[in-house]
Design a protein around this nucleic acid. Structure first.
Lengths: 331, 331
DNA sequence: TTGTATGCGTTATCAT
DNA sequence: ATGATAACGCATACAA
């Protein structure tokens, strides 16, 4: 930098000012500096800037797995939102592993970013204390409520109820769930099953436990497995509410395999509205969770905490959802 | 760090040694240091380490779009491969935009990582000179050959020929291509169409230009569009070779929409073997490009360059491929 | 095996 | 609007 300063006949401070976008620099000076930068092919040392300024203009995004489309699309939305605010996103895969989720919160890399957007799958309500870190964190998902940090989520109960009501509106009465987690009291599965139960109750349909298909991880293969188990059980089924799209696409796969007409015999709705849902055969209805809104809100909250402009109580924001009807529940 | 040193009654040097994994530290000393770290809740400042050591232990991964499953899965594989070598991956989305691809190579963030794995889509053969950067870069894909840097790719011509031969082996003769780029001389599309042409020639089938379906970006929607155009053109078709899976899934979508039996009337094979291909209806055959091998090789080459152990000529590695047969081409 | 002193390249403070 | 200088927190050369 001092070379540049010398060539441009200014001080290093001025070079720094120009490169940092400090506004009070004479245009001619700025031009001279930029010209010198160009001629020397000079590149700012980001590490030095980070050390001196104490900020990196990077934020972390911790999520379970990038190859799950929902998280890939979420990452895309977060990256775009961050970019608009001049921030870079450092993605950390946790694989839903407790150790790795803890490391994300407390490891040294934590201080390579100015803040963290964290979508945990292993840590939960009982780990409240572990979320108390001295750096800005925004929580995503449904693993903890009323925690010590900002939280962006959606109304899972309402959304699941709306999805179920959509199926009931088609005249379906034997609605199976795929992705239930038996005995779970908190978390996404529990909330969505609760919404399902509420919709049934409101319609005066009795909840048949035989219709609750378990699936631990929410992937295509576990969804397929659960669908097979349900079909093999002999329980009468005229609709499926898959608690996420991966499960739903796994279910569709099995229904196609067994030549069961969708939606003629069984209607299917998923949750997340990933790109893939629009292109399955048949295209799958889904609950769209307002992914872009979630990403924007999370980045906004994080920026506010980083800037220190919001030092107050943790806030919780609920994003909007929407039922997207496609052929898998048409008619 | 000096606080830790004081509490542990050692010098900062020793603390640094412990935290950097320097092996020649007495066990009791190490324990004392780690205890002090714990008690003071001390966290190493990564920025300072980066500045001082001149390395960040991060590598960049520049790709067009994370929401395209192939790239999400590639990112996953690269992250895993890097992790095994103690490296963190910083993902940069270029959106196939020329400016952004240049920025990835020449921008300041370039020096936040020790090296770059770069999958360009805008930059190409004519930009040879721009790839000459003073930091280690490994190139992915088919936008440039014989360039000044290490390159990991696959034999696209062979693979496309094998895919086409698979269709010919089913007795298909009117094989459409989806994703052609008219007039393109270099790049993935051109290579795969070349393999297709070779397979036809070898089987004595004349190449009918009416069977070449154009699709600019390789997405589901453009694949669907191309499939519709081909069907509407009235050309006889008994098979489709989609130049990637997104195009193939878009085509499947249209075939389902029009109640055309797959593979009865039209067989379909894709390219990339993304997770989604196993779960489409029907499951789609595809060319599996050895994604894990590509990721591992790319990280290996990059590490070698970073370590300086390979200062020689740029190398090009071709990964293996495999035809994965599923229901969309069964029988 | 461990301690001391120096400097990495930038930004912040203060001054002009 | 710009300049001089200190300091950010660590790793490394060298010494012990």
């Amino acid at each position: 930098m001092s070379d540049v300063a010398q060539l441009a006949d200014v001080s290093v401070k001025t070079v720094s000012n120009v490169l940092s976008g400090y506004p009070h620099v004479r245009d001619t000076t700025r031009a001279r500096v930029l010209d010198a930068v160009e001629r020397l092919d000079y590149r700012l040392n980001v590490s030095a800037r980070n050390l001196r300024s104490g900020r990196t203009r990077m934020i972390g995004l911790a999520l379970p797995e990038l190859r799950l489309p929902y998280f890939a699309e979420l990452a895309d939305s977060v990256i775009l939102a961050a970019e608009r605010r001049g921030l870079t996103v450092l993605i950390e895969q946790t694989n839903a592993d407790r150790e790795r989720e803890l490391d994300v919160l407390h490891g040294p890399r934590r201080h390579l970013t100015d803040g963290l957007i964290f979508s945990p799958l292993a840590l939960g309500q009982q780990d409240r204390e572990l979320f108390k870190v001295d750096v800005p964190v925004v929580l995503l998902g449904e693993r903890m409520f009323g925690g010590p940090i900002d939280h962006v989520t959606m109304d899972n109960v309402d959304a699941a109820q709306a999805a179920t009501e959509h199926l009931i509106g088609l005249g379906r009465r034997r609605i199976a769930v795929i992705g239930a987690h038996e005995g779970e009291q908190v978390g996404t599965a529990a909330l969505r099953v609760q919404g399902y139960a509420q919709a049934l109750a409101a319609a005066g349909i009795e909840l048949d436990p035989a219709l609750l298909g378990e699936a631990g991880p929410w992937h295509r293969d576990t969804g397929a497995q659960a669908m097979r188990a349900l079909l093999d059980s002999g329980t009468e089924i005229d609709a499926v509410f898959a608690l996420n799209d991966m499960l739903g696409l796994g279910a569709l796969h099995v229904l196609h395999e067994r030549r069961i007409d969708v939606p003629g015999q069984i209607a299917v709705i998923g949750f997340d509205d990933v790109d893939e849902a629009s292109y399955s055969s048949p295209p799958m209805s889904s609950v769209s969770p307002g992914r872009v809104q979630i990403a924007e809100t999370a980045v906004d909250l994080l920026c506010a905490r980083i800037a220190g402009s919001s030092a107050g109580e943790p806030v919780t924001v609920r994003a909007d959802f929407e039922i997207v009807v496609r052929a898998s529940t048409a008619g």
